[in-house]
Amino acid sequence: MRRRALLGTAALLVLVTLAGLAAYLTRDSRKATNPPPTKSSSSPSSSALTSEPSPASVSPHSLPVPPTTHDPVAYGKAAAAALWSYDTRAYSQPELLAALHRWLTSEKKYADPDSVDALVPSPVLWKEMAGNGQFATARVDEGHFPGSFTQALQADPGAITAAYVYAVTVSGKQSIAWNGSPAGGAESRVITLAVQCRPSHPCALAGVLPAVAP
């Protein structure tokens, strides 16, 4: 809770207009209890406000590795793809959690690992999914700064310099397949992420917001 409060304090001036921020700062840690589909979200820096990275995808067969970039939108899209992808046949649930934690900022007071953990199936659910050989692939189509975030940043550009945490909304699709159903099915996904991009360091994930900001 202390980490979430610090993250909220540092980013409040630019994130206050985002729907669901209050819930993000005060909610209890939660674990995924519903079947397979997972969700995600992320953020960028002021010079990247006009950037539009190309679509991204992640293979479920290997653990996700964070990219090295100073573009918040590009990082947010990569993080969303990582959060929407998994393969119960290739690695364990703890291994996936450990890999996703490597995407988080090393500044502990701004990192919210619980918000990432909440998007990963619980150990019990993972075991059931593994029994069916379930895996998911992700396709990311678009990423952008939410309009409310952009307006707040333009109104007070200096507010971001305390923590350099940005909001990024990403949309795409998650395709899920399992033994006996290689085609599976696909569902649309949208997520808003908090991404830290300090000028002197590559971007890193701060956390996942509970509500999508358009």
Rank of each mutant, 00 (worst) to 15 (best):
A90R: 05
A78E: 08
S85M: 04
R89D: 10
S57T: 15
L97A: 07
Q134F: 03
A155V: 00
A159S: 15
Q93T: 02
S115D: 02
M129I: 01
F149Q: 07
H144S: 15
P113D: 01
Y110F: 09
S115N: 04
V116G: 02
W103M: 01
D141E: 07
P60F: 00
L125M: 03
A81L: 12
A152Q: 09
V116C: 03
T150V: 12
T137K: 13
L83H: 04
A74N: 11
D141W: 07
S62Y: 06
Y86L: 02
S85Q: 01
V120E: 07
A79V: 10
E107N: 12
P53L: 09
W126L: 00
W103K: 01
A98Q: 11
E107H: 10
P53C: 06
E142P: 07
A130F: 06
F145Q: 11
P55C: 00
V116Q: 08
L83F: 12
L100W: 08
K108D: 09
A162L: 12
S106Y: 11
P53W: 06
M129E: 14
Y75H: 03
P157A: 08
W84A: 05
A56H: 14
A162S: 15
P157T: 08
K77F: 03
T105V: 11
V65F: 07
R89P: 09
D87L: 03
A56P: 12
P72Y: 02
